[in-house]
Write a protein that binds this DNA or RNA. Sequence first.
DNA 1: GGACCTTCTGGGAGCGCTCTCAGAGCTGTT
DNA 2: AACAGCTCTGAGAGCGCTCCCAGAAGGTCC
Lengths: 392, 392
Amino acid sequence: MIERSEQQPSAANTGGTLARPTHEAPPPSEARPASEARPTHEARRPPEARPTLESVAERAGVSRATASRVVNGGAGVREALREKVRQAVDELGYAPNLAARTLVTRRNQAIAVVVAEPESRIFSDPFFAQHLRGISRELSAADNQMVLLMIEEQRDYDRVGRYLAGGHVDGVLLFSLHRSDPLPHIARRVGLPFVVGGRPGWSGAESDRELVYVDSDNRGGARLAVQHLRELGRSRIATITGPLDQTSSIDRLDGYRDLLPDGDPELIAEGDFTPDGGGRAMAALLARRPDLDAVFAASDSMASGALRVLREAGRRVPQDVAVVGFDDVESVAAWTEPPLTTVRQDIEEMGRLMARLLLRQLSGESGPAVGRPAAPTSVIIPTRLVERDSAR
Amino acid sequence: MIERSEQQPSAANTGGTLARPTHEAPPPSEARPASEARPTHEARRPPEARPTLESVAERAGVSRATASRVVNGGAGVREALREKVRQAVDELGYAPNLAARTLVTRRNQAIAVVVAEPESRIFSDPFFAQHLRGISRELSAADNQMVLLMIEEQRDYDRVGRYLAGGHVDGVLLFSLHRSDPLPHIARRVGLPFVVGGRPGWSGAESDRELVYVDSDNRGGARLAVQHLRELGRSRIATITGPLDQTSSIDRLDGYRDLLPDGDPELIAEGDFTPDGGGRAMAALLARRPDLDAVFAASDSMASGALRVLREAGRRVPQDVAVVGFDDVESVAAWTEPPLTTVRQDIEEMGRLMARLLLRQLSGESGPAVGRPAAPTSVIIPTRLVERDSAR
DNA sequence: GGACCTTCTGGGAGCGCTCTCAGAGCTGTT
DNA sequence: AACAGCTCTGAGAGCGCTCCCAGAAGGTCC
C-alpha cells in the first residue's frame, strides 16, 4: 500500500524499476499520521449542542407546540407567528432530530432494501445500480430514505432481522428470493410491509398469502426473441438457459417453449449466466445438433461466450447461426463481435415500481379502511427487442 | 404493462401475433386488485404493541435499568438475573427501539453513503455494487447500517443536507467529488466526519483542511500498463484518456507521462470512458500517427471501442497494435476479441477501506484525546496488471 | 352586553431508552 | 459486633419531539 498525505506523488517516485506494490494491503491501522495532526475533533465533541425545537420556540417567543406546528407545515398558526418561527429556524440553523420524531410518530421515512447476495446475480450483473437508482428516485420523491442491507452469510439474516425488528424502517424491498428464503417470514413477523423484486422461487407453505412482486416479463421477452428468429426464417432454434433453479431462467425457457412446444430437447442446454458457461453450453449444442441455425441465450453474458465458441467453430454469425441474447447490458451487448441482438428490460422502472408499490401499501395502512386503494398486485414490466447484427 | 395475480400467464396468452406490450407502463394506480382482497392490514394497525424494555423488566421481575444492562452486554449483573432477563427477551421477542436508543446515546450505528451521480461514472460502470459490498462488509462487522443517498438534481443537495443534519447517521462516505462540490462543506457544517472515495477534484478554498480519501493507484496502474507495453518492445505507444476533468483520468495520464516524458502529444487522445468515445479517439490516433504500435486506453470500455476500430482498420491485435485497458471489468475485458490485457483495481477493498477509515474516525472521537490513534491519512490501493491476449 | 362559537396557543404528558446516583445487601476486617 | 468497602440493583431524570386538550382571544348574534 502506498500512502500519501500529499495530493499527488512526486514524479520522483517513478524510478526506472517499478516497485510493484504488493496486492495485499496492510490494515490501515498502519497508516502514517498526516504531516500535521488534525485539530482535536472539537467540531463534534461536545456535539456542539444542536439547536432544539425548544430553543427555536424560545427565540421566536412562542411555545414549543407552536414551533412544532410551523416546522411541520404551519397549519393553524397565524402568519405573524409563523414568520417569526421560520426566522428563528433559519438563524439557529435548526434541523429536527429525526430520532425524537420517530420515537413519537412511529414513522421513519425510511425503507430497507435487502439484498441476499449469494443467491442473486445482483453482484455479477450491472443491474444493481439501475435498480437502486429507480428505487431511489421514487423514494426520495416521497422524502423517504433507503437503508441498504446486504446478506452474505447465514448469520447475516439475524443481523438483518434484528435491524428490521428495531423499527428503523417502515417497509422492506426484497430481492430475488430463493426457495424458503426466511426474509418474507421475518418481515411478516415484525409487521413490515414488503415488496419483492423478481418472481419468488415458489409459493411454498409460508407464502400462501400471496406476495407482491415486480418482475420483468421474462417469458414474454423470450417469446419476442424466438419469434424474431423465426421471422428470420430460422427453424432449428436452440436455447441456452440460465440456472434452472432461478425463476427468471425458468420463465425465459417457458417463453421459448411457448413458441416451440414440439422442440427437440437436444436444442436446450443449461448455462449459468456466465460467459464461460454460455460457451460450454454452446459447444454442447453444436456437438448434439450441428445443424442448428439460431440460438437464443438467456443472458448477454452467456451469448458473448456462445459467440466466441461459434467463431472458433468457424460458424459465421448471423449468416450460419443467428444469436439473440437477453438483458441488453450495454457494455456487453453493443460490443460483442458482432453486436448482439437482445431483449431489453427496463430495470430502473422495475426499481421504481417496487418502491411505488411499497409506498402505496404504506399510505394505505394509515388511511381509512373504507375507500382505501385496493391492495397492490404484482406487476410485470414489459421487455422489448433490440436489433443489432447478430440476428438481423 | 401486464399485470397478473396468477404466478404465471397461461400459455394461452401466446397467440400467434404477439401483442407487444407498450413500453410506457401506466402508473400502478391502475393495478387490478388481487382476486381476493387482502385481509385488512391489522398486522400493523395498531402496531401490535411491540414489547418494550419495561415489559421485559416486568416479566423478568427486575427494574428497567437492569434489563437494559443485560440487553447491552449484561456487565455487572448477577448471572441469575441475567438469565431471567434473557429469557423474558426471548419469550416476548423483544427488540430494542433504535430511535429511543439513538435519542439518548446520540449514536445511530448508521453511516450515509452519498453518491452524486451525474458527475460520477458510478452508474455506467459495474463498480458500484462492488464498492457497496466492500463498504457493507466492513460496516456490518461493526454493526453499522448503510443509508444510501443519491443525488441527481441540484435540489437533491438540500434533501441530503437536511437528512445529514437530522442526525440520523454518524458519518458519511462521499463518492468522486468534483470541483467545488458542496458535500464536504455540508458534512463539515453538521459536524459529521467523512471519507471520500476517489481523489477529490482540487483542494480549492474550502478544503485547505485536507480531506481523507481512498483511491486506486491510477497513476501507478498506468505506469504498469505502459511499462508492460515497453517490455513488449513497443515504442510508439499511444493513450486514450478519460475526460480530463476527472482526477482518475488525470492520474492515469500522468502515469503514462511518467514513463514517456518526451512523448509525442499526437499520441494522446481524449475519450469519455464510453466504447464509442474510445473508438473515436482510436480513429483520430490512427489518422494522426498511422505508425503507432500500442495503445493504453484508460478504461476497458474505451479499449473495447478501440479494438473494434482497429479491427475495422485492418490492424491485427496484438501483432500490429498491442492494447492495454484499465479497470478489469470482467464482463468486458475477458470477452473482447481478443481478450484484453488490463490493469485491475481492487474496488471492493476500496470500499472496505473507506468504511474502515470512517469507523476509525468515529471511535477516535469518543475515546480519550491522549493515546487516541493518529488521525487517518488518505490511502491508495495498489493495482496490478492482468495479462490477456491483446498485449502479450 | 352577554352567551356562544371559532380560531389560536401553550402546558404537559409521554414515546422507549440510557445512565447517574443513591442505597440495599454482602463480605471481610478489626 | 460494628463498620468499611464491595458489588448489585432500581428510582428517576431526561433525550427532543408530537399531539391532546384546556383555555385565551377574538367574533358573531340576539
